[in-house]
């Protein structure tokens, strides 16, 4: 059977030369086409640039949504971001699609920093890999019990008292 609806989202992170990450997000679906561009300063992860455009939309009010994005300038990617973004961009007078786009950009920034650790953890014997994951958990205790891999009954958590 054919699709009645299709959605594509892509988000990309590119380091710039001035200790800044450029983050580009694009949504193309059957009803909407929009994009968000952010710049995030390293190391404090403050959003220094925030722009959005909408090209195709289902309601005549939608073109005013990109005007909300500059509200996030000055906000830092970190704990509490979800609530801040929802308060600034979401809700009945906001645009949940663009709010979610900003959060997906922030998530991509975090994963950009995660890539080298994941690459390192993949090297070595099974036991060496397990020890690397355990070292990562000790350094990032917020990951403990965050998913099945770091649940209490996971082999990765054996002999760890976190």
């Amino acid at each position: 059977m054919t699709l009645a609806f299709q959605r594509n989202k892509i988000v990309e992170v590119e380091p710039l030369s001035n200790n800044t990450l450029a983050v580009s997000w694009r949504l193309v679906d059957s009803l909407t086409e929009a994009e968000i561009h952010l710049q995030v300063k390293i190391p404090d992860l403050e959003i220094t640039v925030g722009k959005a455009r909408i090209y195709r939309f289902p309601h005549q009010e939608c073109p005013s949504a990109p005007g909300l994005i500059p509200k996030i300038i000055g906000v830092r990617v970190g704990p509490g971001l979800r609530k801040i973004v929802q308060d600034l961009l979401g809700g009945a007078s906001g645009c949940p699609e663009l709010a979610e786009g900003v959060l997906e950009c922030a998530n991509a920034v975090i994963l950009h920093f995660t890539v080298p650790q994941i690459q390192e953890n993949a090297k070595g014997s099974a036991e060496e890999r397990r020890k690397k994951y355990q070292a990562m958990l000790k350094f990032n205790p917020r990951l403990v019990r965050s998913c099945v891999a770091f649940a209490d009954d996971s082999p990765l958590m054996q002999e760890l008292n976190l």
Binding site: L3, F5, R7, K9
Partner: peptide, 16 residues
């Protein structure tokens, strides 16, 4: 150079 990229694709079909 892009150092991280994510694609999310969703399709919806009405079975009935």
């Amino acid at each position: 150079m892009v150092t991280f990229s994510r694609t999310m694709l969703v399709g919806g079909e009405f079975l009935e």
